[in-house]
């Protein structure tokens, strides 16, 4: 693996922070835009991941399916309103792919995350903690997620999970 240049690493950091802030600002419409059109988003309990069982809590297999989820969050799911707040650790770059021009074309990274939930009139609680397994591709419009698999330790969901992690 070639050493990752700082500029690319800085773009990876920006992808993480922009994604987290979009999810924490109720800016749901922006969320699918972090993915490629054929991208996938999976949120999977750790027990299934470790046992090789395919079931996820959410398994959205395209950007279009993510838009359906956004519509669900905004328009069709009756739920208690809540705030959420992501804290994402520094990404670990496992592997990069190099394009014909000799530049980095894709990255495989991991990053720990913790999401806190705060309901109106309630305290802030740890809602979902886990690790992102990302396949990031370099496109003409910047870095995009080709796949984001969130493997979460918090297997016992505190009732329901509505917003994207």
């Amino acid at each position: 693996m070639q050493a990752l240049d700082f500029d690319t690493f800085q773009q990876v950091l920006a992808l993480h922070t922009d994604y987290a802030l979009a999810c924490d600002s109720a800016d749901w419409e922006r969320w699918p835009d972090f993915f490629t059109e054929d991208g996938s988003y999976r949120l999977q309990p750790r027990e299934n991941h470790e046992q090789g069982l395919p079931l996820c809590l959410l398994a959205l297999e395209s950007q279009a399916m993510m838009r359906d989820r956004v519509y669900g969050v905004k328009e069709t799911l009756y739920h208690d309103p809540y705030y959420q707040r992501h804290v994402v650790g520094l990404p670990r770059v496992l592997r990069t792919e190099t394009g014909p021009d000799g530049r980095v074309s894709a990255l495989h990274t991991q990053a720990n995350y913790a999401v806190f939930r705060t309901k109106l009139d309630g305290e802030s609680t740890v809602f979902n903690v886990g690790v992102y397994h990302d396949h990031i591709v370099c496109t003409s419009t910047g870095l995009k997620l080709r796949t984001r698999l969130c493997v979460y330790d918090s297997e016992m969901i505190a009732n329901s999970l509505i917003y994207p992690i």
């Binding site: 949120l43 809590l57 989820r69 009756y78 969901i157 009732n159 329901s160 999970l161």
Partner: peptide
């Protein structure tokens, strides 16, 4: 995706 704690249908049952 329709069912379970985040499901399009079932999440609101828990709520």
């Amino acid at each position: 995706n329709l069912f379970g704690p985040a499901g399009f249908v079932s999440a609101d049952d828990g709520e």
